[in-house]
Write a protein that binds this DNA or RNA. Structure first.
Lengths: 238, 238
DNA sequence: CTTATTACACTTGTATACTAGCATACACGT
DNA sequence: ACGTGTATGCTAGTATACAAGTGTAATAAG
């Protein structure tokens, strides 16, 4: 049998559109509450409505858009309820995951985690943007799930964290890069030294504590008040 | 070939198709590995391909179908990796949730839980089907999440549990209705009496323990061997 | 001026024709 | 008997026309 070159599958219009629109929403380029038009997007991307509609169906699943038939499609406003549930889910699962990682974690992924730390440090020194650091942060946490062979769990968290991640981006200060970087170093150290007893305080500090300032963000009458939607909405059951 | 249901209300064609096809897959009426055709489904449901395509896009997100362009769409085989991650997620989140429920739980939902118990008992006496009991089981666990105001978390678990629920259905014996019913009673009692210390053993017994027999199901050369897919597949990165 | 009505522009929902790529069968040449 | 080209029928991907409902603004009636 002969081995031949494999061509990178040129992605189709649908996946391209998904990446593009989702990115626009997650970076707040498309603002919470803003109406979006299938036709508009289709024209901007130079494709037809059909793939756009399938993209919107996906985004709807992730609570990123709300569709009202015969009226319009809107970027969802940030729902505190969804933020809270995402925080709960992340904290709970990542806490358990770190405990697993303390028992057993592959060396190669641990190495990648350390490499990620170096990249973060580099970006910090270079005064990188919030957006850039957020990307590295995501990649860092993903690596932990990958190491524990829980990639799909990470995917589920990601889908649930759309509102959580937007509010993080909104609160620019967050906890400073420096602080987050310091905590990431602690996480790696915990895994490396199998210091299981340090897991709980770490989660409390790294995930739960920072959220408190975000609550202020939507409870106060801030400049971003119109980005939030306090009405409770049940998810679709089907 | 596939056989499908008939529609009740004049709901959205897309939502109708989604319910129908998903149900067919989850009940194993559409078998793991089986090819499905957009045109075929469209004709059986008496609608066009467009809404069907949007349905398939959703099912793909839930790991229920795999689409190969220009080739075909197939019901996913059961992936042990996905089962394991679903069990991990359910056990971890429900454990934490029960602890929350022990601290605070609304009376009206607690009442609904007790009503659900009675329905389950009734169904047990009437020798209901596996399918019927599974429905009640789902509704029971959902109520707990609703009571703790974590409905979206339940939704996330549901999306991740498609393979887990199929393997449950496959292992007919499961742990008998009687056993499950007994454990559901214990759960209600734990919430009712705020017996926080009993949560951990309950989770171990009700969720973690029963899974062990399922692993045999796909590891052995059983009659259902061709329903399983042991190849590891990473989720789509977005 | 106020109020009711109507026309219209806009949205998403649906159906359908067409495009492009893969897999199989089969004929053909070696 | 075997490998190769090719016709053909299948698939999902896409574009587009049309249907049906909504909100709004112009318009007519009071």
């Amino acid at each position: 049998m002969m081995t031949i070159l494999k061509r990178y599958t040129s992605e189709n219009n649908r996946d391209f559109a998904y990446r593009t629109v989702k990115r626009a929403i997650m970076t707040l380029e498309l603002e919470p509450g803003q109406p979006i038009s299938e036709i508009d997007i289709a024209e901007q991307l130079g494709i037809s409505r059909t793939p756009i509609r399938e993209v919107i169906a996906r985004l709807k699943e992730e609570y990123l858009v709300e569709v009202t038939p015969q009226v319009g499609t809107y970027v969802t406003k940030i729902q505190p309820q969804l933020v809270e549930e995402a925080v709960f889910t992340r904290a709970t699962l990542e806490r358990e995951l770190l405990k697993l990682a303390c028992e057993d974690f592959p060396d190669d992924i641990l190495t990648e985690l350390k490499i990620s730390l170096m990249r973060q440090e580099q970006l910090f020194k270079q005064q990188g943007t919030e957006q850039q650091f957020h990307e590295l942060d995501k990649a860092f946490h993903y690596l932990i799930f990958k190491g524990a062979q829980k990639e799909h769990v990470w995917g589920a968290i990601t889908r649930l964290s759309t509102h959580y991640n937007r509010i993080r981006l909104l609160s620019e200060i967050e906890f400073s890069f420096e602080n987050a970087l310091k905590q990431h170093k602690r996480i790696v150290e915990i895994i490396d030294t199998k210091a299981l007893s340090l897991v709980n305080p770490m989660i409390d500090e790294h995930i739960l504590a920072p959220t408190k300032q975000w609550y202020k963000l939507y409870q106060d009458d801030s400049e971003f008040n119109h980005y939030f939607d306090n009405a409770y909405k049940s998810p679709d059951y089907l």
